[in-house]
Design a binder for these strands. Structure first.
Length: 940
RNA sequence: GGGCGAUUAGCUCAGUUGGUUAGAGCGCUGCCUUGACAUGGCAGAGGUCACUGGUUCGAAUCCAGUAUCGCCCACCA
């Protein structure tokens, strides 16, 4: 690079506003500019002497792209991270990516197949190399998307669950648990995916309601005394039946127990047993028992001492344990053949439709088989107890609190955790077998050999299986902070950042991940992984539907940031559909919802939308209109800032403290806003925090304050007041930007940079500036401002309701003013005239007849607008009538309340006093309005 | 079958320990290109707080029940 080029590059990285302020807010340039600036300046690194604050990113799958759920959660995490960083905490956002065993294997396998290759052409090592290659090329999609969103993570600490040190933690954990006898291996019935050919966890099985069939089959009694009829949804499994069960108290079959029946198609005789499991009310009260292919039957078989007969191969084809005629058929062919044969033999009694629950794998969508294999398990008795204790004791707190019920329920019903998977990509199980099948567990083959004094003549073979992905994720909290290596624990801040402050995640992984982290971190470190768990709602589409590719209703957060043309959106939504026939419908729906595609809202608007929608514990319907509204809000902020900067200029402002009422009022409102935002964020009420900021910035700062400040900024205004007003403008904007920055980091940084010189701000970035603290509330100034707003509002309201030309300045007469009112009219005359568009204000006495005026009550005062014949008396009468009606209704309410003796006797004095005051006010208004109505009626 | 949660304006949602005439955004109506902003301003209309009963001086709020909807968990062949 040339010297000039270097200078340019350096200049481009110097913080400062990107350009002059355009008339409308344009997020793209701003966002692209600031992220690299922050990152390269090291803004996101932890540090300082402040109290530690840390957040773990639930590591997204390396195969993943950012979806709305991520974007939502990451926004909330980043908001908390930025807030605490600005509050001076030593703030760590620990990010990283999960290796995602099955998902990654599927992606890479598909890639190989797309190239015309086959997965089976690769050896284990070759395949793993291939996956790493894929990871290096494509594995950072999601982290780059996180940057687009503004996620202020310390990327230098980014981890991958297959990193060496994290793998070391996995091995260490496995070995220690094995040594503690908390890990064992054995033959068990597991959920088996015959297509992926691996065990999967209960949690990865999705139960679908599907229409199936129920077949009734006759099993002849061996003694020739008739037969029994069993019902089944899976007739092919009869090939593996070991017995027939009836209820012990069922009189119909009392004589049968202990006898045998002929198992059709197999030539086997099987006994009839009595077992409580059988429901005599259902079907015939006889159940065929197939221990190798059904979880319940497994239990029954075990109770009666039967050896399970496995009739399937790993791909769910009938194996050699079944009669030869069926061997080699897959499970569905076998079913058809069995039914056909039963029918031919007259053993099929009935076939009828049956609503049933079909287990399918959440990845493959295939029907899952209960399948008998050797697997590794973690015992959950003690760990489960520990996990429960950590939450019951309050060491880990759920927010919202009711999630503790879900957690309790699950922790109370734990089964041992099957951790082995028959996959290639993942942490290999650190267990070795000798030629006799003895198991040795160790940190490495070398360690095993040394511990057992094996010479080179001993052949050891490592277990081919890998650990399920959640095993390594469950160590995420302590392994990313250096565990188990003492040196790394020191340098990574193990003691400083653990327990982390809060985990923000969805309810769907409470069991997969949250519970297991609590158990594992608790067991190995004695600490909890996090002090709080904030459970977010689920982002749904406008109509409340879950977003899914197959439904074609997915919104991509990046499309909301950058915008997308309709055609591109249609193409995206209809590409690679599992059911292409849905394409038409999806296209129609998409055209209907986004006739012009999606405009570019920018990351800040998207973030603010997420925050504003983040109520507690409820699904979130994502409505584009909200996003548009908040983009408009940021445009409002942008233009207000443009106005402020117009008056503030680029030079350092003289130090001055404005003590006029308007400045005191806006500072007071700002203080209240700070308090409200603080309180809301402490409770994770992002929605309330967002609402408070929106309200303050738009409806107080823009709608009122800037308007009220304008006269003081005019060229002919008092120079001292103008100076102090300029300063207040800049200071209030500065504080507002700080408050807003955790929500909308880009636009606030861009604007704030322009205030650095005028306010002589020392910090380089808003991102690392100190967060504001609430000052005192100024009740006197607030009362003045409220009065002012009431008077202006009264005039405006009367004027509009009477259809008086809004642009035309008119005179105002005021009656029944108190001393306070008169003083205020004097102080605020200019402001009132300007904002209410008045040419004059005159305080007149009671004698002035109001018959020729529109009358607007304002507290005790009467605001009179001379009509001078421009307004229909009828219209004014109608207006007054409406107001009178309203006042009367209010009066009746209050009168009723106060007439109730028990109310007066029992309610707190303050409440009663308030009601009495209201009574007086309503009475006054009603009387005034009646008088005026009477006056006008006399004129008509 | 068990558990959790919802039901407030046309739509999406707030509504603190029970206490003004139940609020906001979007949408809607009317007027307005006022030198920050039409991605805007000003002023409006719009609600039997799902239903029934109870507690209370007072209930959107607390309690019980009913209805509808959603989600999670569960082995009925």
């Amino acid at each position: 690079m040339s010297r000039a080029g270097q200078a340019r590059a350096k200049a481009a990285l110097r913080p400062g506003p990107t350009h002059r302020m355009e008339k409308t807010y344009q997020p793209e340039a701003i966002e692209n500019h600031w992220y690299p600036q922050w990152e390269q300046a090291g803004c996101f690194k932890p540090g300082g002497e402040g109290r530690p604050y840390s957040v773990l990113l639930p590591p997204p799958n390396v195969t993943g792209t950012l979806h709305m759920g991520h974007a939502f959660q990451h926004t909330l995490m980043d908001c908390m991270i930025r807030l605490h960083r600005m509050k001076g905490c030593d703030t760590l956002w620990q990010v990283g990516v999960d290796h995602a065993g099955i998902a990654t294997e599927m992606v890479v396998t598909r890639q190989i197949e797309a190239e015309g290759g086959r997965r089976d052409d690769y050896t284990r090592e070759q395949f793993i190399d291939r996956v790493w290659k894929w990871k290096h090329e494509s594995g950072s999609t999601i982290t780059n998307q996180m940057r687009r969103l503004g996620a202020s993570a310390d990327w230098s600490r980014e981890r991958f669950t297959m990193d060496d040190d994290l793998s070391e933690a996995v091995v260490e954990t496995f070995v220690r648990l094995f040594e503690e006898r908390k890990i064992y291996r054995g033959p068990r019935l597991v959920n088996w995916d015959p297509v992926l050919q691996t065990a999967i966890s209960d949690l990865e099985v999705v139960n679908h309601d599907e229409q199936g069939k129920l077949w009734s089959i006759r099993y002849p009694r061996s003694d020739g005394q008739g037969d029994v009829v069993v019902a089944t949804t899976r007739p092919e499994t009869l090939l593996g039946d070991v017995c027939v069960a009836v209820h012990p108290d069922d009189p119909r079959y009392a004589d049968l127990v202990g006898k045998t029946v002929q198992l059709p198609l197999t030539g086997r005789e099987i006994p009839v047993v009595a077992d409580e499991y059988v429901d005599p009310e259902f079907g015939t009260g006889c159940v065929k028992i197939t221990p190798a292919h059904d979880f319940n039957d497994w239990e029954v078989g075990a109770r009666h001492g039967f050896e399970p007969i496995n009739i399937f191969t790993a791909t769910a084809q009938v194996n050699q344990n079944a009669p030869e005629a069926y061997q080699g058929l897959d499970r569905f062919e076998a079913r058809a053949r069995v039914i056909e044969d039963l029918q031919r033999q007259g053993l099929l009694v009935e076939e009828k439709p049956h609503a049933m629950v079909v287990p399918r794998g959440d990845r493959s969508g295939q029907i899952i088989e209960p399948y008998l294999t050797d697997q590794w398990f973690v015992k959950m008795d003690e760990l489960g107890k520990l996990g429960l204790e950590k939450v019951e004791s309050g060491e880990v707190e759920f927010v919202p609190g009711n999630w503790i019920n879900t957690y309790r329920h699950w922790m109370g019903n734990l089964k041992d955790w099957c951790i082995s998977r028959q996959l290639t990509w993942g942490h290999r199980i650190p267990a070795w077998y000798d030629t006799d099948g003895n198991i040795y567990v160790g940190r490495s083959e070398q360690e095993v050999r040394q511990a057992n004094d094996f010479g080179p003549e001993t052949v050891l073979k490592q277990d081919p299986d890998v650990l399920e992905t959640w095993f390594s994720s469950s160590l995420w909290a302590h392994s990313t902070l250096g565990w188990p290596d003492p040196q790394r624990m020191h340098s990574d801040g193990f003691n400083r950042y653990l327990p982390t402050s809060v985990l923000i995640t969805g309810f769907d992984i409470i069991f997969f991940w949250v519970a297991r982290m609590i158990m594992m971190t608790g067991h190995f470190t004695g600490k909890v992984p996090f002090e709080q768990v904030y459970i977010t709602g689920l982002i749904r589409d406008r109509d409340g539907q879950k977003m899914s590719k197959s439904k074609g209703n997915v919104l991509d957060p990046i499309d909301l940031i950058d915008g997308i043309e309709l055609d591109a959106l249609l193409a995206k939504r209809t590409a690679a559909l599992m059911q292409p026939r849905l394409a038409k419908q999806i296209e129609k729906h998409t055209r209907d919802e986004f006739p012009d595609g999606i405009p570019a809202f920018g990351a800040d608007a998207l973030r603010f939308t997420f925050a504003a929608l983040a109520g507690h514990g409820r699904d979130i319907k994502f409505d584009l209109a909200r996003c548009e509204g908040y983009r408009n809000f940021l445009n409002k902020l942008w233009n207000a800032s443009r106005f402020v900067m117009m008056h503030v200029g680029e030079q350092e402002l003289p130090r001055s403290q404005a003590d006029d009422v308007i400045s005191r009022w806006i500072r007071s409102r700002l203080s209240r806003t700070i308090t409200a935002v603080d309180a809301a964020l402490t409770d994770y009420r992002f929605d309330l925090a967002a609402a408070a900021l929106y309200e303050f910035i738009w409806h107080e700062f823009c709608d009122w304050y800037l308007e009220l400040a304008k006269p003081a900024l005019a060229d002919d205004a008092d120079p001292a007041t103008r100076e102090s007003t300029r300063r207040t403008l800049a200071e209030v904007l500065d504080t507002a930007l700080r408050l807003l920055h955790p929500f909308t980091p880009f636009v606030t940084e861009e604007i704030w940079q322009r205030l650095r010189t005028p306010l002589a701000l020392q910090t380089e970035f808003l991102a690392t500036t100190i967060y504001p603290q609430a000052g005192a509330v100024d009740l006197e100034a607030e009362a003045d401002a409220e009065w002012l707003k009431a008077v202006i509002g009264g005039v405006r309201s009367a004027r509009t309701e009477l259809n008086l030309a809004p642009g035309k300045a008119m005179p105002l007469l005021v009656q029944q003013t108190g001393a306070d009112d008169q003083a205020r009219f004097e102080r605020f005359e200019t402001l009132i005239k300007r904002l209410a568009r008045l040419e004059s204000i005159e305080i007149v006495d009671q004698d002035r007849d109001s018959a020729d005026c529109a009358v607007q009550l304002c507290g005790a005062m009467r605001l009179l607008i001379p009509l001078a014949g421009v307004v229909d008396l009828g219209e004014e009468l109608a207006r007054l009538g409406k107001q009178l009606e309203r006042e009367q209704k209010g009066l009746e309410n209050v009168e009723r309340k106060l007439a109730n003796e028990r109310f007066v006797a029992n309610a707190p004095q303050a409440v009663v006093d308030k009601e009495r005051q209201r009574l007086a006010e309503h009475r006054h208004s009603v009387a005034e309005l009646r008088t005026q109505v009477a006056k006008l009626e006399r004129l008509t």
